[in-house]
């Protein structure tokens, strides 16, 4: 709590710090750690391939896209296997993170209506769980791009940056949607449709350069487009993504973080009473 003492700047800084602290659940590390552990274990404990499923199914999908777009339709993109994998795996993460995160309040109604938990914790836990499985894709992407002869170097580190961007966008969006779902349960179906359209509005199976010049500005308005095309640049061109892609995707991450923070403490909307 900001005290009565202290200048306006101090209070302001404290509020910013507190918001940041709460948004990333820094005061709840033990809780986040345990719940992420629970999620990962429960998802895969009783299945044969375990954690591999999260990567295996998008990889199968990527392989199908590879066959359709490269072998049948002859898309003119070099290193298409690396290209498709570096697009489909992060997209699978993003869409899963949003769709599961949207359910984090309604799906845990029994928990949040009985224990005074900060509502963002569950969404954050979901996003972290998905981020961990996503990080398992890094060695796969590096291996495939090396196999296709794409150089490995400092630019490869930028994968961490773009993954964080996707994480922040997905977390902020999921937080807002999770509150929305309490009021409109069919948001789930609407979002399933939107995610399908969003997939094709994002340069995942096609490259940014294939988009006609006059539509590119529209694609920049897609919060994940620059992050995904940045990943394409890293794993297929083997070079540092352009400063535009870095700044624009970073901007979207900040934007969604701010939106998420604004919705974080909306208890007065009566979310819990509505469950």
């Amino acid at each position: 709590m900001p005290g009565l003492m202290g200048t306006i700047e101090e209070i302001f800084l404290k509020v910013i710090y507190q918001t940041f602290f709460d948004y990333f659940c820094l005061g709840k590390k033990f809780l986040v750690y345990n719940m992420v552990g629970r999620n990962i274990k429960s998802k895969y404990d009783r299945s044969f391939v375990g954690l591999g499923w999260t990567l295996l199914s998008p990889m199968m999908l990527a392989f199908i896209y590879y066959l359709v777009f490269k072998k049948v339709m002859h898309v003119q993109i070099d290193n298409y296997l690396a290209f498709i994998l570096s697009g489909v795996l992060p997209w699978a993460f993003f869409s899963q993170c949003v769709m599961e995160g949207m359910d984090s309040i309604v799906g845990n109604a029994g928990l949040v209506s009985k224990i005074p938990l900060p509502l963002q914790v569950l969404t954050f836990v979901n996003a972290v769980t998905n981020l961990i499985t996503l990080s398992a894709s890094i060695p796969i992407l590096i291996a495939v791009s090396l196999f296709q002869g794409v150089p490995f170097g400092w630019h490869t580190l930028m994968v961490v940056y773009f993954y964080l961007v996707l994480f922040l966008v997905a977390y902020g969006l999921a937080l807002v949607l999770s509150i929305g779902l309490v009021f409109f349960r069919d948001l789930r179906h609407v979002m399933a449709l939107i995610m399908q359209m969003w997939f094709f509005a994002t340069p995942v199976v096609y490259s940014f350069e294939m988009v006609p010049e006059k539509y590119r500005a529209v694609i920049h308005l897609n919060p994940v487009a620059d992050a995904v095309s940045g990943l394409h640049t890293i794993f297929t061109d083997g070079r540092m993504p352009g400063i535009n892609a870095i700044l624009l995707s970073g901007g979207w991450a900040v934007f969604f973080t701010l939106i998420g923070m604004a919705f974080m403490r909306r208890r007065f909307l009566g979310v819990l009473e509505k469950l």
Partner: peptide, 23 residues
């Protein structure tokens, strides 16, 4: 208000202690 909040059936009792305590 509820005993065993967040208990997960697939985890052992021991693991659930940590989960529940964290919650």
């Amino acid at each position: 208000i509820e005993l065993g909040a967040g208990f997960h059936p697939d985890l052992s009792g021991y693991e659930n202690i940590f989960l529940n305590a964290a919650i």
